[in-house]
Design a binder for these strands. Structure first.
Lengths: 338, 338
DNA sequence: TGATCTGATGAGAGCGCTCCCACACCTCCG
DNA sequence: CGGAGGTGTGGGAGCGCTCTCATCAGATCA
C-alpha cells in the first residue's frame, strides 16, 4: 500500500490506456470515454495511487500551496486568541481542495524580507495574511505582483481594491454593545477605545459613537479614553474616564483584556459592576467568561472568518474572481457585567 | 526582479559554468573551485535566483516539507493556549532550513484517514504532532512507515522508542508547586488532578505525590480529586475535596482553567485565598495573570517546546539521528494566590 | 617522461506529471 | 461519396532540478 510509490504510468498500464488519458481522468477532463474513465478509476483504487505533488507543480507552474502569513512582532498578544480559530477555519475550507497550507510566521522584522521574497518568487499561489498592523505593505506588494491575497481585517490603505479581505463587523458589534447598554437604562455611556492607528480600534470607537447617535444621544469626546489593548492600559483609561465623568454608568471597552483592566479600575474606585457601571467587552475570549463578574462581550466569528478568507482566496485562484471584501456580523454575548 | 522566473540554467550561463556546477555550488558541495563558486554566487545575486522547490523535490524524491498535525477534536479547548506558541517555536527553528511547514488540522475524526493517507504517501518528510489524545495511533504508524515523527507530550504507548517527543516536565513542575506550598507553611496540601487517561493529568498528579513525599509527608488518596480540565470540573472537584478534608490549606490544581474553578469553589465556601487556602495552577496561561487573586502557577516553555520538536525532527531528517525524547523543565511563577 | 591519481567540470538521463499536437475513427452534410 | 467537423486517444516534449558518469587538466610519483 505504501512502499514503492506508484506513478501515473502504473495506473495507465493497469487500466490499459496511455498516461495522457489517465491524467485526463484524474483532472476531470470531459474528453474521456466513460469506459476509460471507469478503468482508470478502478486502477487508481486498486493500486492506491496518489499523484506526486512535486511533479504536478513542476508541470503546471504552480505550487498549489496557500501561504498563511502571520506577520506580527508581538505574536503572543495578538495571535493567541485568533490564531487557532482562524487557522481551523482556513484548513477546513482548504481541506477539500488540492491546496496545501504552509505557515509563515514573521515574529521579528528581520525575517520579513525573506518571507516576502519567498512569496514574490512563487512560494505560494495565494496568500492569507493575519496581521494587526494596519500599515503592512506586504498585501499590496503581493497584489501588485499578481499574487492573490486576502487579509484578515480591513485591508491596508495602500492596497486599493487589489487585495481581498474579511473583517468582523467591528463597528456593528460596538453599536450592538452600546444599544444593549442603553437598553439597560444607562445614561452616561463611555468607551475605552483601542489605539487610533489600528483599524479595530478606530472602527469600534466609531461604532460606539454611532450607537449613541442611533439612541439619540451625544457622543462627546470626553467620554472616550484611548488605551493600547493591554489590561493596564484599560485600567488607566477607565480611571481617566471616571475622573472626567464621575456619572459614568455604562462602559464599552474595545477588548476583553482591556475590559479586565476596566473592572480592576472600577473596583478600585468602589464602583460595583453591573449595579453602578455596566461593562461590555469585545472578542469573547476565554478571559470574558472567566472574569468576575463574567463579561458581556461581542463575539467575532473567528473560525468563520478563516473559512471565508480561504474561500475568497480560492475564488480568485480557481475561477479567477476579482478580490472582494466581506464583513462578518458579530454577536452580543450577554453575561453578568451588564 | 520577479516576473519571468530565472532558472539554474540562467545562473550557470551567467557564471560561465555548467548547470551541474551551479547546482553543486547551491548545494554546498565541496568539489567546486573557489573561482566557480564565487562566480555562481555572484550570478545568483545578480539575477535574484530562487530555486524551484517543485523541481528539486521531484529530483530528490523528497517533499522538503514538515507537516504539523493538530489532531484534536476539541481544538478550541486544547489548541488555544499551546498552538500559537508552539507553532512560533517550530517556524523559528525551521526558518533557517529549506523545509516548509505545512499545517494539517483534523478537528473531526472523519478527516483523519485522509491526513494519514497523505502523510503515508510521502506528503511530508517528517511530521510534528500536537495532540492531547494519548492513544493517537498516527505517530506509531508513521514511524513504522519510516517517516520521522516527533510528538508534543509523552509519546503514545504503542510507539515504542520509534517516535521522538518533547514534553514539559509535568511531574517536576507539580513537585515545584507542592514544594512551594509546603514552604509557605501549608499543612494539608491536596490536588485537583486531571483525567487519569491523559498523560499530563497522570504526571502532574504523580508530581504532587512525590512532592509531598520529598517533604516527608503522606499523599493519601482522599487528598486527590479528579476533574476534566474544565472550570466547572475544577470547582466540583474542589468542593468534594473541601467536604472530605475541611482542614485543606494548600491546593495544587493541574491546570489554570481548573484553578479558576477552584477559586470559585473556595470563594463560595467562604475560604480566603491565599490566607485560608493557597492555590497553585498549571500552564501560566493568560487566565492565571488575570485571575483574582492572580494565580501562582507553573509555566511551561511553550515556544521552546516547539523549537525543540522541530530541532529533533531535523536531526532525524538531516543527520538521520535516532528519535529521542526530551523533557523541558518548567518554572514556578509566584503570584498572589500563595 | 610517461603512468597514475586527484579534483573540477560538463553532458545527459531521469524524476512524474501536463499538455500540445497528430492521428484514427465516426458522423453528418452537400 | 468526398470532405468537413467532431471525439477519444497516444506520442512525446518539456517543466527545473539532481546526480551519475565520463572527461579533462593538472599534480604526483617512479
Amino acid at each position: 500500500m505504501t512502499g514503492a510509490r506508484s506513478t501515473l504510468e502504473d495506473v495507465a498500464a493497469r487500466a490499459g490506456v496511455s498516461r495522457a488519458t489517465a491524467s485526463r481522468v484524474l483532472n476531470g477532463s470531459p474528453r474521456v470515454s466513460d469506459d476509460a474513465r471507469v478503468r482508470v478509476e478502478a486502477a487508481v483504487a486498486a493500486i492506491g495511487y496518489t499523484p506526486n505533488r512535486a511533479a504536478r507543480s513542476l508541470a503546471v507552474h504552480r505550487s498549489e500551496t496557500v501561504a498563511l502569513v502571520v506577520s506580527e512582532p508581538s505574536v503572543r498578544l495578538f495571535a493567541d486568541p485568533f490564531f487557532a480559530g482562524t487557522t481551523l477555519g482556513i484548513t477546513g475550507e482548504l481541506g477539500a481542495t488540492r491546496y496545501q497550507l504552509v505557515l509563515l510566521m514573521t515574529p521579528s522584522d528581520a525575517d520579513r524580507p525573506r518571507t516576502e521574497d519567498h512569496l514574490l518568487h512563487g512560494g505560494a499561489d495565494g496568500v492569507l495574511v493575519l496581521s494587526a498592523r494596519a500599515g503592512d505593505p506586504l498585501p499590496a506588494r503581493l497584489a501588485r505582483a499578481g499574487i492573490p491575497c486576502v487579509v484578515a481585517g480591513r485591508p491596508p490603505a495602500g492596497a486599493g481594491d487589489a487585495v481581498g479581505f474579511v473583517d468582523a463587523d467591528n463597528e456593528g458589534g460596538a453599536r450592538q454593545a452600546v444599544a444593549h447598554l442603553v437598553e439597560r437604562g444607562r445614561q452616561v455611556v463611555g468607551t475605552v477605545a483601542g489605539p487610533s492607528d489600528m483599524a479595530p480600534g478606530v472602527d469600534r470607537r466609531a461604532g460606539w459613537a454611532r450607537g449613541l447617535a442611533q439612541a439619540g444621544r451625544l457622543a462627546p469626546a470626553d467620554l472616550v479614553s484611548e488605551a493600547d489593548f493591554t489590561r493596564e492600559g484599560g485600567a488607566a483609561a477607565t480611571r481617566a474616564l471616571l475622573a472626567r465623568r464621575p456619572q459614568l454608568d455604562g462602559l464599552f471597552v474595545a477588548s476583553d483584556l482591556m475590559a479586565l483592566g476596566a473592572l480592576d479600575a472600577l473596583r478600585a474606585a468602589g464602583r460595583r459592576v453591573p449595579d453602578d457601571v455596566a461593562v461590555v467587552g469585545f472578542d469573547d475570549s476565554e478571559l470574558a467568561r472567566s472574569a468576575d463578574p463574567a463579561l458581556t462581550t461581542v463575539r467575532q466569528p473567528i473560525e468563520r472568518l478563516g473559512a471565508r478568507m480561504a474561500r475568497l482566496l480560492l475564488d480568485q485562484l480557481e475561477r479567477d474572481a476579482p478580490p472582494v471584501g466581506e464583513v462578518l456580523s458579530t454577536e452580543l454575548v450577554v453575561r453578568r457585567s451588564t
